[in-house]
């Protein structure tokens, strides 16, 4: 299901995720990704007119890391926080399509703990923050068999989506 998945996010939202990671360093940050699943297609960078289905991130819903016992290497979003994020999404005609968190002084790769606790379908963005400075940002989706994550491409674009459904986005 996660094959060839692509996440579309604007440069400004990507920067906000990085900034959140820097702000909470050395603790992990976390938040919800609000958007639309496969509502648009992107034109491939190959320039040959190929269209790629894309999941769009249109808003962030930053959250407080509830793991105050171990915030440097764990994050937790409670069911109540999830419901709050879903409500915020619904109010804007969006849905929660994933989550982001930071890995302070660790690479932007999912840990076994991430995989053990992951849901399918959601996009999981991870930003590495080294010595307080945000570095790589990656996105992942859990495979159907829960055995591992598959990487999800991140496309940083500004109003470049080609709408397949008549929907167009407005970059703030």
């Amino acid at each position: 299901m996660a094959d060839a998945a692509t996440l579309w996010i604007s440069g400004s939202l990507a920067e906000k995720i990085r900034a959140h990671g820097a702000e909470t360093y050395p603790h992990e940050c976390c938040g919800a990704l609000l958007g639309r699943d496969s509502s648009a297609v992107l034109e491939s960078d190959r320039g040959d007119g190929t269209l790629i289905p894309a999941r769009e991130i249109l808003q962030l819903f930053p959250l407080v890391n509830r793991r105050d016992d171990s915030p440097r290497n764990r994050f937790s979003v409670t069911a109540e926080d999830v419901l709050a994020a879903e409500k915020a999404a619904r109010e804007q005609g969006l849905e929660v399509v994933g989550w982001y968190h930071s890995h302070p002084d660790h690479p932007a790769r999912p840990s076994e703990y991430d995989r053990d606790h992951a849901w399918p379908w959601y996009s999981y963005i991870i930003v590495s923050v080294q010595n307080g400075t945000p570095q790589d940002m990656t996105s992942w989706r859990l495979n159907d068999d829960r055995a591992e994550f598959s990487p999800e491409g991140i496309e940083i674009r500004h109003r470049a989506a080609v709408s397949a459904t008549g929907f167009s986005t407005t970059e703030k």
């Binding site: 976390c30 999830v82 999912p110 992942w140 999800e152």
Partner: peptide, 22 residues
């Protein structure tokens, strides 16, 4: 059925290299 979300660094797993990384 309401999800809660958790994760964090520990022993990084040897997953495949990500694509589309910036």
């Amino acid at each position: 059925i309401i999800p809660s979300i958790a994760g964090g660094v520990y022993l990084a797993s040897p997953s495949r290299s990500p694509v589309g990384q910036r």
